[in-house]
């Protein structure tokens, strides 16, 4: 335990100064991408024919379910299962997309909450933009 944490902290602070240091770094890779494309033996979320058919429909396609498609989807699913690597087996029943991490400023540095006065002020300043096609024209659009 101690040895590992020591090793870890040493790793973090390792300065590269010489050619030997570089060689040591480059010749000791931490992992391989093959780990990502390996398939799990007991994948508990193999996509069935029925599910593939449903997903095709949800995507607005008329296509038939082909073995090729099912295979590639299952491969992609295996890949995505890597999200849970190293974690305890959990039953992934909870399905809810109620969260999103974005790199939008107001998500992280919230503006001050809106007051009525501000809101009314903003409304006064609304201005349609020609650039956005918001100004009315009497021709039919394409």
């Amino acid at each position: 335990m101690f040895k590992r944490s020591l090793h870890k902290s040493t790793r973090l602070l390792r300065q590269i100064k010489t050619k030997e240091d570089i060689d040591k770094l480059l010749n000791n890779p931490t992992w391989s991408v093959k780990e990502l494309s390996s398939s799990k033996q007991n994948s508990n979320s193999e996509i069935t024919h029925k599910t593939v058919a449903k997903m095709i429909k949800l995507s607005g396609f008329n296509d038939e379910v082909t073995p090729e498609l099912t295979k590639s989807l299952n491969l992609q699913m295996n890949f995505i299962e890597k999200l849970y690597d190293g974690e305890e087996e959990e039953v992934h029943k909870h399905s809810n997309n109620d969260s999103i991490f974005r790199l939008i400023a107001s998500d992280h540095i919230p503006d001050k909450p809106l007051t009525l006065k501000q809101l009314q002020e903003e409304i006064k300043n609304l201005k349609p933009s020609k650039e956005k096609g918001e100004i009315r024209d009497d021709k039919n659009t394409p």
């Binding site: 979320s45 997903m55 949800l58 999200l83 992934h92 029943k93 909870h94």
Partner: peptide
């Protein structure tokens, strides 16, 4: 979709 559990959230 609801079929996939919480991959999106994860």
């Amino acid at each position: 979709s609801s079929s996939s559990g919480d991959h999106y959230l994860k």
